[in-house]
Design a protein around this nucleic acid. Structure first.
Length: 837
RNA sequence: GCCGAAGUGGCGGAAUUGGUAGACGCGCUAGAUUCAGGAUCUAGUGAGCAAACUGCGCUCGUGGGAGUUCGAAUCUCCCCUUCGGCACCA
């Protein structure tokens, strides 16, 4: 009987589809488990990264199902996005048609992998039935102040007439036309994610099922820092003051000048009437040009004197105010007090412009190369305060609090927490996205679309023009509308939402995918948070942070109760070929479909799960795939060639274990220790590679038993009924354990062995403790820490017995010759170490 | 620069709590089968030393160096390399 994987895989896939085998009931009694993989962008074809992601998820889903859980395991499409627009421009096809074609093709590819999805729950985010709910959320967020509109600077390409995302700006130029990108101020929509900064940060501490790496990245991204705001009056300018933010209020007395961002609103005002106007204006212009090019990061620190002075809030000293290119308007207050003695950036700036340096914190211990009178670098460490008047002698960490308190009392400052996180800009001047559901009315201003009028449908009779411009602002049938408030002429918003908005709540929609309302709270609360989320590390910040925010926003709108969307997260590594990421430009792409055609889905799944643990990068190996295929061939032959004997053998009665001959006891021990090992590897660690290798060992042992039973000159093994029973037990458990990994071949062999039930629905086995117990155990004997012998002792042997047996060993004797035994360490069942000298 | 992860045979990777380093797979070598190739099966496969008996035995070895321990891939410290993230965040 030949292993015809193509025929076998198709037959089972058809059956699963026909019978909706993996559809899950919402109200099942059994415990629930929500297994989810990041849904794909329908780019055209699936790639190996998808295969890996979805194979991992499928093993978990199938395993949990066999463990008795009701498993929710859905799939869908992150279907809005720029590639569809590019394809539209290039091929003159509507983004919707292109996207739907891709979805149809990729759905077939996923089905061909035998993934156990509940396809009835499939969603595509470009469908109005999906995004209409998102539009409702938007309106509710708008009413709650969580969505708002503001004017802000963006990357603008004049020749393409569009805003570019940061990642589409290459060295200051448009990625498409190479035109220089300009900074332009335009209106855009934002989500107030900063309102949740603290909660998102604290939430990180509750995510014990997330990789530490991702949590670190999220915490850094949120970037909380605690410090103080300090108000400096500007000299001779009545009422004008500048507020700075600092994390080092303890160094206040060392402030010798002030640096403000060239974008600071008072920059020009400071220069007026001082004779510095021209220089300041030139500097600001230059800064704007360079900023558009995004070159800063390692640009040299530059600045210019503003012409004005600030008054030190404690000493009353007058310090110059500079414009400095490294001060960011977006962070803090856009102005800093410069303490060159204790901040490296200020130190460099001061050195360049010959500004005074005042040491106010003295290191407690002698520091190499530290000279109070001749600083070579800023001292950013701890120490005690000097040159600080009444604060002298304080430890600097304590001084932070005291100085802040002092300022507060004087009304010159207050403690303040700042976050690096900015509000989420969701406006896109693109066509292929969910329309933002508001209208602009000359009388009423910005008015949300009435909830009953949703969805605002993206027209299917328009395409982007050849330059990539969205057709919406020109499409009168789209934008011309009436104001929901006054009924007068109004213009629809033509911006669409960032596609990350769709992926911020799709995991909740899967729970009630056809519901008329966005979310059925009762159902959603039953399933969320997702028990296991699986995807690439590249989403460590964006998608995962947005989803965490959106979940909270939905919670506060009353749509669900969860705080966090994903309880456990597994970030899988990349699939590499020849040491680097597969890419068209490198020409090292391996197409999953080619592999499935040549070896079958089971082989591809087996290889990809075997080659590396999930979180690590995986090196693709054609030879390795062949090896995986060989293993399945061997499994196939072992079962089919011995089919008759196995089928007629009675199931093994575990009560008979003690009466088995040693070789069969050994095989049973292997069977059950493998069950134990595989269960742990899949359930606790997701280390499918070691689970598979353990099953391979079991197969090797079955093979050895069968081979050993082949009489001289014959081909088939000859065993008695008891032995066949034990072999049957081993092989059937092999099929069960392999089923989540290679579901088709195991299902087929299961039926070949006469079973009529579905293997995927069989209960996951428990290891038999009796079978795993052995009468004797092998222990290692060391002399002075070096292995000198392996001996067999009774399983319960005490140290005395083990030591006696060890001393009986010739090699051990030899190494102990002429030596005194000083100490013996005994680890029962493992080792005996004799220390002698 | 800062933060994080990782360095184990020719390769992918194992090693549960500090207890036989190299499981499993790939590759390679030899043999069986074969006209041949492929496939399959058997044996071997970290580096060395030693050995014409038989069984073996011995030394070294997890990026480098120190340390803790009866015992270290595993724990501590220092250094090197690679990858990833952040990058003037005041």
């Amino acid at each position: 009987m030949k292993y015809n994987f193509e025929e076998i895989e198709k037959r089972w896939q058809d059956k699963w589809e026909r019978e909706k085998s993996f559809a899950v009931a919402d109200d099942a009694d059994s415990p629930r488990y929500y297994a989810l993989e990041m849904f794909p962008y329908p780019s055209g074809r699936i790639h190996m990264g998808h295969v890996r992601n979805y194979s991992i998820g499928d093993v978990i889903a199938r395993f949990k199902r066999m463990k008795g859980f009701s498993v929710l395991h859905p799939m869908g499409w992150d279907a809005f996005g720029l590639p569809a627009e590019n394809a539209a421009i290039k091929h003159g096809i509507h983004p919707a048609a292109w996207t739907m074609d891709n979805i149809d093709y990729m759905r077939k590819q996923l089905r061909r992998l035998g993934l156990s999805y509940d396809w009835d729950r499939e969603i595509a985010t470009c469908h109005p039935d999906y995004y209409r709910h998102e539009q409702l959320f938007f309106i509710q967020m708008l009413k709650k102040g969580l969505a708002y509109r503001k004017r802000t600077k963006v990357n603008w390409c004049e020749s393409c007439h569009t805003v570019l995302a940061n990642e589409q700006v290459e060295e200051g130029c448009c990625w498409r036309c190479d035109n220089e990108v300009q900074a332009r101020e335009i209106d855009g929509w934002f989500f107030r994610i900063t309102d949740y900064a603290e909660e998102l940060l604290e939430g990180c501490d509750t995510l014990s099922g997330w990789p530490e790496k991702v949590l670190v990245m999220q915490r850094n991204w949120i970037g909380k820092s605690e410090g103080a705001e300090i108000v400096f009056d500007v000299k001779d300018r009545d009422g004008l003051s500048i507020t700075v933010f600092t994390t080092r209020p303890d160094t206040l007395m060392g402030a010798t000048f002030m640096s403000i961002s060239p974008e600071h609103p008072v920059a020009m005002e400071l220069a007026e009437g001082t004779g510095q106007e021209d220089e300041v204006k030139a500097f600001i212009d230059k800064f704007k040009r360079e900023k558009a090019r995004k070159e800063y990061g390692d640009t040299e620190k530059e600045g210019v004197f503003s012409g004005s002075y600030a008054v030190h809030p404690v000493t009353g000293d007058v310090i110059p105010i500079y414009l400095a290119n490294f001060v960011l308007m977006e962070y803090g207050t856009g102005a800093v007090m410069a303490v060159p003695a204790h901040d490296q950036r200020d130190f460099e700036f001061a050195s360049r412009y010959n500004l005074p340096v005042k040491l106010v914190i003295k290191p407690d211990a002698d520091v190499d190369g530290f000279d109070v009178n001749n600083l070579e670098a800023a001292w950013e460490g701890t120490g005690h305060l000097v040159n600080s008047g009444e604060f002298d002698g304080l430890f600097n960490e304590k001084a932070k609090k005291e100085i802040t308190a002092w300022l507060e009392k004087q009304g010159r400052g207050r403690s303040r927490v700042t976050y690096r996180l900015r509000d989420w800009g969701i406006s896109r001047q693109r066509f292929w996205g969910a329309p933002i559901p508001v209208v602009h009315c000359e009388k009423c201003g910005v008015v949300p679309v009435r909830e009953g009028d949703l969805p605002v449908v993206l027209p299917v009779d328009a395409v982007p023009d050849s330059a990539g411009r969205s057709p919406l602002p020109q499409l009168e049938s789209f934008w011309r509308t009436r104001c929901p408030s006054c009924g007068g002429d109004a213009r629809r918003e033509t911006d669409t939402m960032d596609t990350f908005v769709e992926s911020s709540w799709y995991f909740a929609r899967y729970i009630c995918p056809r519901d008329d309302k966005p979310l059925d709270k009762e159902k959603v609360d039953r399933w969320l948070p997702v028990d296991q989320y699986i995807g690439g590390i590249e989403h460590a910040i964006l998608h995962l942070l947005y989803s965490r925010f959106f979940t909270r926003a939905l919670r506060d709108l009353g749509w669900l109760s969860a705080d966090e969307p994903f309880k456990n997260l597994l970030t899988q590594g990349m699939v590499l070929k020849d040491g680097s990421k597969m890419s068209k430009s490198k020409g090292n792409v391996v197409d999953p479909s080619d592999m499935i055609k040549a070896y079958g889905a089971d082989t591809v799944r087996l290889f990809i799960l075997f080659a590396a643990p999930p979180e690590r990068d995986l090196e693709w190996s054609d030879k390795g795939v062949e090896g995986a295929h060989r293993f399945l061939q061997r499994l196939w032959r072992t079962v089919t060639e011995n089919r008759e004997h196995i089928v007629s053998a009675s199931p093994f009665d575990s009560g008979m274990h003690s009466q088995l001959p040693d070789d069969l006891k050994k095989l049973r021990m292997k069977t059950h220790s493998t069950i134990s090992r595989v269960t742990k590897d899949i359930d606790k660690r997701f280390h499918f590679n070691t689970a598979i290798s353990a099953i391979m060992e079991l197969m090797n042992e079955v093979g050895a038993v069968l081979k050993g039973a082949v009489p001289e000159g014959e081909e088939a093994p000859v065993l008695d009924d008891t032995a066949w029973s034990v072999v049957r037990e081993a092989l059937e458990h092999t099929l069960i354990m392999l089923n989540p990994i290679v579901p088709h071949i195991t299902e087929e062999l299961w039926h070949i062995l006469g079973h009529e039930d579905d293997l995927w629905a069989v209960e996951w086995p428990e290891a038999d403790a009796v079978a795993m117990k052995s009468d004797t155990v092998k222990i290692v004997v060391q002399v002075n820490g070096k292995v000198r012998a392996n001996i067999m002792v009774d399983a319960g042997a005490d140290q005395e017995a083990a030591q006696a047996a060890a001393l009986d060993d010739a090699n051990v004797k030899r190494h102990l010759e002429g030596k005194q035994i000083r100490k013996v360490i005994y680890v029962p069942g493992r080792l005996l170490n004799i220390v002698a000298g």
